[in-house]
């Protein structure tokens, strides 16, 4: 019960098989706290249990849908998406609703495109964005359109053009202007 009992823990070199140090003296918890999304500065105490995917990092390979409430103000918005009176706007079925896609702003289309991969709505947004002269870049995996202020210069041989383009950046969620050499076979 005295100090000698601590020696097997303290002596690093001949780590006695008696105790698993990661459970007795423990480990530096910094990476564990980071994996939980717990920031070290106390005042940034962000609750983590509401979006807790799993007790282990190895099994937390995707985010989980947290509890959420559709605020009152989000429902019964009159005459949005051609909804009549107090009925909620719906955008569910391909037959009735697909024409409504032309009512969405660009950003809404980008959201639907990136949020619902491999679905009908991704296809619909792709078609609508093309109608609006956006083009999808196959390798950059981003949408771009010509900068209306400047006509691009077609390269000799006609396989590409150099000009100024507007890209939609899905990471920063904003449009940004770039000078760029565009290869026609890279877009769709």
């Amino acid at each position: 019960y005295g100090l000698k009992a601590l020696l097997p823990l303290i002596r690093r070199e001949d780590q006695s098989p008696d105790y698993d140090p990661s459970m007795t003296l423990g480990i530096d918890l910094t990476p564990v706290l980071q994996s939980l999304g717990i920031s070290s500065n106390a005042n940034g105490r962000q609750r983590v249990l509401d979006t807790f995917p799993s007790p282990w990092v190895e099994t937390s390979r995707s985010e989980v849908e947290p509890r959420f409430f559709v605020p009152e103000s989000f429902t019964k918005i009159p005459s949005v998406l051609q909804s009549s009176g107090s009925k909620n706007p719906v955008f569910n079925s391909v037959q009735q609703d697909h024409a409504k896609i032309s009512l969405f702003q660009d950003e809404t289309l980008f959201y639907l495109f990136y949020k619902h991969p491999g679905s009908v709505v991704q296809e619909l947004t792709y078609l609508e964005l093309r109608k609006r002269n956006w083009r999808y870049h196959k390798t950059l995996k981003v949408w771009l359109t010509k900068d209306p202020m400047m006509e691009p210069v077609v390269a000799p041989g006609g396989a590409s053009e150099r000009g100024s383009y507007v890209f939609f950046d899905p990471q920063r969620w904003e449009k940004c202007q770039r000078d760029f050499v565009l290869f026609y076979n890279a877009i769709m």
Binding site: S93, F113, K115, P117, G118, S119, V120, E123, K141
Partner: peptide
């Protein structure tokens, strides 16, 4: 799944993770 979010063969170049 609302019909719009049903699986659909989209281009292989499209992002397949949200």
């Amino acid at each position: 799944q609302t019909p719009l979010s049903l699986p659909h063969p989209t281009s292989i170049f499209f992002p397949n993770e949200t």
